[in-house]
Write a protein that binds this DNA or RNA. Structure first.
Length: 843
DNA sequence: AAATGTAGCGCC
DNA sequence: AAACGGCGCTACATTT
């Protein structure tokens, strides 16, 4: 229920009650006239000039945008759907709404609910700001602005998504902070933003309660100008006992550690009751000393190397920084990574430093913003002044240090410390090594394959143009649509947001009517292979250099980054290039080869997610099925009642396979019917049979759905959490949307334990193998190619390269680790292993 | 010219 | 209207 308590201050309560068209005298902007539906002359009793509500006792002053339809009828701000959402989020966080003062930037209603223009905003604030408060001498503790309009009006800023969550100085009240966040109406349109709104409101509450004002401890910033200074600081740090943990950050000319150079390095630490941030150059600039990273024999290089290689280091996304260090001859190892820490704490939000600082160190966010304003958003590191560069570098290292302390504490409180230290960080280090090692590719084969595809493209294009009777750009969505649906007059089966669909499924349907769609499908495939996976040259596109070929280093190795934070499920992501979506076509996978004279060992888990589903649900029949010779066949036999002696053909088996996977992903009978091209009645009956055969599974699924709704999270067998939003809030404003969302989260709560369990099992395998190999042959950037190691992982598949003579031992080690029992469940997953001379098999 | 959004498609 | 979970990359189209 909206709060109906009136302001306690009599004088203001009086005005609030009487705030009708008759006593609102302001005519300073055009809105006084248009604010009433049908215009003021219509005689309708509608309110404009509506001031705020609430006592302001808790010190919170909230600015929205302008009056909406409901507001002008009732004559109170924030009483429509957005108001309900605001009430919900305030009560969820524990801010008493009636004690806050809630008003709008513009106190009238713009016609047809348009956004009030800047002049209207400014006129309204100028004329009503001092009057529209709970009492004339009242001063807030915190101003909260909701949405882009209030942000512009109060702080003269744009881009709410970049400014939200940061505490700025209030221009209106001396010594008061302003926090901005999304407008509740925006959340109604994009419910996935709700957690951010909630976090920001919580931040406001913490601020009001003095529990966390995000104050920064004092820090001594040292910009090292001379060699002597540098040597003194190195001496200080190297002889400190105990050696302080260092948070390290680098600035570089670009993102590629093999091509770009480190420009400056900063180290932040806590020593003798003080925070210190050191920063120095590694690139020549006038009047400043710099450490020359190419002179490996110099004293200063050796000191830095010794320090970094023997200290506990913290990075923010150290995958980036450590690879730079390694390439420059310093084997720095990340002990703590604030990015990975945050990923465990909140898998749903971004994990970049800027975002983390704005979320957890709001005061620093303002400071960081100031630096950005000084140096410009897109500064050229070569042109930046040394002072700005080092200040920026040092502040990032300092913030990383503060985040580190904060996150370690939070991980401990959430029972995630072990998962972080024993699992996530060792995995991160193993992945950085794997990426640095890279995987070798067969350049000639790439070129040959690409040539084959280009020939195919040429031929088929000619055919296409002949059929259509004109040359046209079939890669252009708009031209293709014109040709297919206008010129050829084919029927439209499916629509996208922007017009008729031309996707593969639709084209295959259209192929029954005309030869062109099939040609398009095969042309698209050939081009995709060339553009994305081969040399980027499809013979047509102007832009070359796309494709994996463009990622090869001088030894024909590709160094994809494996991200530990790319998913919400604990699965890895891979980029530049992604190695997780390489075509299964063996011709293509043969492009991936081990180093000269070595072998690949390929190990994969079979049907891991379904096995996990079986044991999580504890359904005896399904456990029986997943432990049988062939799961899909077994399921089919059970469903249809075919005896063990009768053989089952592949097509029938695929039916069972489709339904099994849909179960794990939360798919329904309708989708299955569409996929298989059969009636839904049929697939629905299969679903029924399936549920009846394995009753433990629907039961478990129900319980998962209940679990996330009650607890707000589900937890995997490794203790990884998946947090869910509170849909109760959304349901109040938009019940339909909430129901849709609920179905989605129900499916997630089912899929997450399976997907995350398998992902962390694979992650564990990777980390343990790295650990054991490292004990036999300590890993180092300079000697890595002398020893076997992982080169690739694809969710449930793992690829190693190994010298021939070590292959048997490696296989035994891999098999041993892969068959370790799973936590909580105690069973092991089935795995298979192959020795190969290329990823696509022997050639 | 750069940034953003969309469609489409590759993988598990 | 129907609804299958998790990703990244490409080209094209549109916006700034």
């Amino acid at each position: 229920m909206p709060d109906l308590q009136l302001p306690t201050n009599i004088q203001f309560a009086q005005r609030f009650e009487d705030s009708t068209i008759t006593d609102f005298k302001c005519q300073k902007c055009p809105l006084w006239e248009t604010s009433v539906a049908g215009g003021r002359s219509s005689g309708k009793i509608m309110r404009s000039g509506v001031y705020g509500r609430g006592t302001g006792r808790n010190g919170l002053l909230i600015y929205g945008e302008a009056l909406g339809h409901t507001e002008i009828i009732i004559g109170r701000p924030f009483v429509g759907d957005a108001g309900k959402l605001l009430s919900e989020v305030l009560s969820e966080i524990g801010i008493v709404e009636s004690q806050s003062y809630i008003t709008n930037t513009v106190r009238c209603r713009p016609p047809s609910n348009r956004v009030p223009v800047a002049s209207e905003q400014d006129i309204c604030m100028e004329n009503h700001f001092t009057k529209d408060l709970p009492a004339p001498d009242w001063k807030p503790k915190l101003v909260l602005t909701l949405g882009a309009v209030a942000l512009r009006s109060m702080l003269h800023m744009q881009k709410i998504s970049e400014r939200r969550g940061i505490f700025y100085d209030s221009p209106m009240f001396a010594g008061v902070k302003t926090l901005c966040t999304y407008h509740p109406a925006a959340i109604l349109r994009k419910p996935e933003l709700y957690p951010i709104l909630r976090d920001d409101i919580r931040r406001a509450k913490d601020y009001l309660n003095d529990t966390d004002r995000g104050d920064l401890p004092p820090v001594t910033n040292i910009q090292i100008r001379t060699r002597t200074d540098f040597l003194e600081w190195m001496d200080y740090l190297l002889s400190a006992d105990p050696r302080p943990a260092l948070s390290v950050d680098i600035e570089s000319t670009g993102l590629n550690y093999r091509k770009d150079k480190i420009v400056s390095i900063s180290m932040s630490f806590y020593s003798e009751d003080n925070y210190v941030s050191l920063a120095f150059l590694t690139d020549a600039r006038p009047e400043w000393w710099h450490l020359n990273l190419t002179d490996k024999q110099s004293l200063e290089f050796k000191l830095l190397q010794t320090l970094l290689e023997s200290s506990k280091l913290t990075f923010q996304n150290g995958d980036f920084d450590t690879k730079f260090f390694w390439y420059n001859g310093i084997h720095a190892v990340s002990n703590i990574d604030t990015l990975d820490a945050h990923y465990l704490l909140d898998e749903n939000s971004p994990h970049g430093l800027k975002h983390l600082v704005s979320m957890f160190l709001p005061k620093a966010g303002g400071y960081q913003q100031k630096i950005l304003e000084v140096i410009g958003g897109d500064w050229d590191i070569q042109l930046a002044s040394v002072k700005d560069l080092l200040e920026y570098n040092a502040s990032d290292a300092f913030f990383t240090h503060l985040l580190r302390d904060k996150f370690l504490d939070m991980l401990k409180h959430q029972g995630l410390k072990d998962l972080f230290e024993q699992h996530a960080m060792p995995l991160k280090r193993a992945l950085t090594c794997m990426s640095y090692r890279g995987i070798r590719m067969d350049r000639d084969r790439i070129m040959r394959l690409s040539e084959t595809y280009r020939k195919e493209i040429k031929e088929k294009e000619e055919k296409l143009y002949d059929l259509v009777g004109q040359r046209f750009k079939y890669t252009s969505q708009s031209q293709l649509i014109k040709v297919l649906y206008q010129d050829l007059g084919l029927p439209v089966y499916k629509e996208t947001k922007t017009g008729p669909s031309t996707d593969k499924e639709t084209m295959e349907e259209l192929a029954k009517l005309h030869p062109v769609p099939a040609l398009i499908v095969s042309l698209r495939h050939a081009r995709k292979m060339c553009q994305t996976y081969l040399d980027g040259n499809d013979g047509i596109s102007e832009d070359k250099g796309t494709g994996i070929l463009g990622h090869l280093d001088e030894y024909d190795r590709v160094h994809a980054s494996f991200l530990t934070h790319g998913t919400t499920s604990g699965r890895l992501a891979s980029k530049e290039p992604s190695l997780l979506n390489i075509p299964r076509d063996l011709e293509f996978r043969r492009c991936f080869i081990p180093q000269q004279g070595w072998q690949f060992i390929n190990a994969d888990y079979s049907q891991a997610e379904l096995i996990l589903l079986a044991y999580l649900s504890k359904d005896p029949s399904f456990i029986n099925a997943v432990t049988s010779e062939d799961l899909h066949t077994k399921v089919l036999r059970t469903l249809v009642g075919i005896d063990e002696s009768v053989p089952i053909d592949k097509e029938m088996r695929n039916f069972a396979k489709a339904i099994n996977f849909r179960k794990a992903y939360g798919g329904g009978s309708k989708g299955l019917a569409a996929q298989l091209g059969v009636e839904e009645e049929l697939t629905a009956s299969w679903y029924k049979k399936w549920d009846a055969a394995y009753p433990g599974i629907p039961e478990w699924m129900e319980s998962q759905a209940t679990l996330w709704q009650v607890k707000g999270e589900v937890v995997s067998i490794y203790g990884r959490k998946r947090r869910f939003p509170n849909l109760q809030v959304l349901a109040i404003a938009d019940p339909k949307r909430a129901r849709e969302q609920q179905g989605y989260y129900d499916r997630l709560s089912i899929n997450f334990p399976c997907q995350a369990g398998v992902a962390d099992t694979m992650n564990r395998t990777l980390r343990l193998l790295h650990y054991y190999l490292n004990r036999i042959w300590p890993w180092s950037p300079s000697t890595m190619y002398n020893h076997p190691g992982a080169v690739l992982t694809v969710h449930d598949e793992l690829l190693f390269e190994s010298p021939e003579e070590l292959v048997p031992d490696m296989c035994e080690l891999i098999r041993g680790i892969m068959s370790l029992p799973l936590p909580m469940i105690g069973i092991s997953l089935k795995s298979e292993m192959k020795v190969l001379s290329t990823w696509g098999g022997d050639v």
